[in-house]
Amino acid sequence: MMDKVNVELTVNGEKYEVEVTAKERLLDTLRKQLKLTGTKEGCSVGECGACTVIVDDKAVNSCMVLTAQVDGSKIITVEGLESKRGLHPLQKAFIDNQAVQCGFCTPGMLMSALALLNENPDPSKEEIKTALEGNLCRCTGYQQIIDAVEAAAAEWGN
């Protein structure tokens, strides 16, 4: 009985029409259908945040959303950050501040940070922590990630 649903998505500015099953998560569509494997799967229960993407300006866990639910949405993934002009200030800040170790949580961290800065370009340290509280990292102890977001925010202001 499992039916298919046709869905239109705008991902990183590009329009896609995909056919998904009723059980397909946004995470699966991004990784398997669109081959955007930058978005990672770490727990499948909305806990680790490695699959965080931006859906209609909000950071969400793409493992917690059925693709069929977000028909017509605008989605940003980590692949959408770098442009012809080069790396996004957040990406640069992550590199400059040694905020990357194994790199598996990095795409999700970047997405949560981007959603924050889009909404609040001058966040306090506490606001940064709240924005990233749903992104687990086992390598960095988070300090250099906070440093990076603060640096990107300062750059944002200029």
Binding site: G49, K58, M64, S112, A115
Partner: peptide, 9 residues
């Protein structure tokens, strides 16, 4: 409740 991502959904 949960995290920012969870509260957004």
């Amino acid at each position: 409740i949960g995290s920012t991502q969870i509260r957004n959904r």
